[in-house]
Every structure is written in C-alpha cells, then in structure tokens.
C-alpha cells in the first residue's frame, strides 16, 4: 500500500518539476555502510534555484544522502553507493568523476561551524588560491563579495585579518557559507547548518538562505520542521533510509499524503 503511495507521489512531483529544471537527478540511489543499508532506492529530482529541505528523524539517512551528492562519503571507510546522481549529464557516482572539481561546483556547509584556524580573510581565499588565483585585488574583491552575500561584511570588514575563531558561532557559520560561495558553486549543500546556533543566529542564516536561493540551488538537511516550513520550496521526508514523501513544502505540511509524514510533522515521533 505504502509503496504505491510513494510512487504516485514521486511521479506527481516529477510532473510538477517539468516546468522548472532539475539541476540534480537522483535515480534509484542506494548507500551502504558495510552491511548496513543506510539509504534505500531514492529517486528524486532537485529543482534549480530553490531550497529543498530534507527532514526526518535521526539516522534516517538524510545526512548520508546529502554527503553522497558531493562525494564527501568517500572519506568514510566502508561506505559505498549504487545508483545514479545525474548532474550536467554526468553520473556523479562513477569513479571517473574528479571529486575535487565536483566539490567546487557543489559546495557544502556543515552542522558545526568549522572555520579554519586562520584569519577571516584567509578562510575566504584559501580555495581561490588553491585554484590558482593569485591576483590580490581579485581575491579581495571576491572575499568582499562573498561576505556581503553572506550578510557578514558589515560585522567583520574591520577585522579581516583577525582569527576566524574569534567570531561568534553564528558569524562563524555565515563565514563558512561565505567561504563556500567563493568558488561560485551551482549547488549548496547544508547539513543542519543552524542546529548548533542560538535562535537569533539561526534566523539570520534562514534569511540568508532565502536570499541565496535566487542564485544557488540549496539542499538543506534540518531537524527543525518549522525551519523547513519557513524556507523550503520542496521538502523530502526520509524515514529509515527510505524517501517516504517528496513534494511542495506547503502541501506537505498542510496535507501530507503519508500517515508517517503526518505523524512526524505533528511531532508524534522523531
């Protein structure tokens, strides 16, 4: 019974998305940690220049899924994935893919702010310098641009040479977002970016994401359902490694098609 519902639902969303263009196309994705089947048969398109929220209880596979998109899971010993994630006509999961290039196009921000123990400026330009940009003026311009986009410029413009660790948690996280923007990625992956932050910093991040979606495709994992409801265009509900429901956020929060989605959203478990 459930399976049928899911299929219908996914197909429905495919229909909806024909108008907008999917930037990522996930097809029958399975992820294993050793014997453990962590993510099961996920199929979902991700729409360009929108925010897609992944919700679900802890251990449901949403973070694993997110980390597979830019191949961060390669780092975990014993993790392997099957299926396809199509991006620009290329299956990102094939070994031929240059993960370094891939991660330049698909940026990521983590749960805990992880600024490098260097100056604020160095944090921003590290990846640019690695890509071979040496022109000081250009580096400065990009750094400023990124900080402005991340709504951090006014707070830090006078102390760019100070250690990034001297910033508050919320500022650190916005710095991490700014850092990810420096390479002009197409997609931004965020793994519970505000779960370690206070409510005010958290709402600043949300504002920022709403602004950023005009330029970037954003996929965000969140524990906070209100957050998903506030900012996401699409929401996907994961449960025990399966994609239970995927659709427009409004519809999902008002009329969930699935009983389990409803239970989770209304706080009956999770």
């Amino acid at each position: 019974m459930n399976q049928v519902y899911v299929k219908q639902n996914v197909e429905e969303s495919h229909q909806n998305m024909k108008k907008a263009s999917p930037v990522l196309e996930v097809k029958d994705l399975n992820i294993y940690y050793g014997e453990h089947h962590a993510v099961k048969h996920i199929t979902m398109p991700i729409e360009e220049k929108s925010i897609t929220a992944l919700i679900g209880p802890s251990g449901c596979g949403k973070s694993t899924f997110l980390r597979t998109i830019n191949r961060m899971n390669d780092l975990i010993h014993g993790a392997r994935s099957e299926g396809e994630i199509l991006y620009g006509g290329i299956n990102l999961l094939t070994p031929k893919v240059d993960v370094v290039q891939l991660r330049k196009e698909i940026g990521m921000v983590f749960q805990r702010p992880n600024p490098f123990p260097k100056s604020i400026y160095e944090n921003l330009v590290l990846s640019l310098k690695f890509s071979g940009i040496r022109d000081k003026k250009k580096l400065k311009d990009i750094a400023e641009d990124c900080l402005r986009k991340a709504a951090l410029w006014d707070e830090v413009k006078d102390r760019l040479d100070k250690s990034a660790l001297s910033l508050s948690g919320g500022q650190q996280q916005r710095l991490c977002i700014a850092r990810a923007l420096a390479l002009k990625p197409k997609v931004l992956l965020l793994d519970e970016p505000s779960s370690a932050l206070d409510p005010i910093s958290s709402s600043k991040i949300e504002e920022l994401l709403l602004k950023l979606k005009e330029e970037y495709t954003i996929i965000i994992v969140t524990h906070n359902m209100q957050q998903a409801a506030r900012i996401a265009d699409k929401t996907a509900f994961f449960y025990q490694g399966e994609l239970i429901e995927y659709g427009n956020t409004d519809q999902m929060f008002t009329h969930p098609a699935e009983k389990r989605t409803e239970d989770y959203i209304s706080g009956r478990f999770g």
């Binding site: 830019n70 961060m72 780092l75 370094v100 290039q101 891939l102 991660r103 330049k104 196009e105 940026g107 990521m108 921000v109 983590f110 805990r112 992880n114 600024p115 490098f116 123990p117 590290l126 990846s127 690695f130 890509s131 991490c176 850092r179 990810a180 420096a182 390479l183």
Partner: peptide, 19 residues
C-alpha cells in the same frame, strides 16, 4: 570537521593537509 571543510571547498587532500 576541518578536514571536511577543506575537502568540501574543492581542495585536494594534500593541499587540505598542508594548508
């Protein structure tokens, strides 16, 4: 997290370690 931060920026492992 710092290693992941570097790698997620499209920096190679060696460069992440080095810098």
């Amino acid at each position: 997290e710092l290693r992941e931060g570097g790698l997620a920026l499209g920096v190679t492992q060696w460069h992440t370690i080095k810098t």
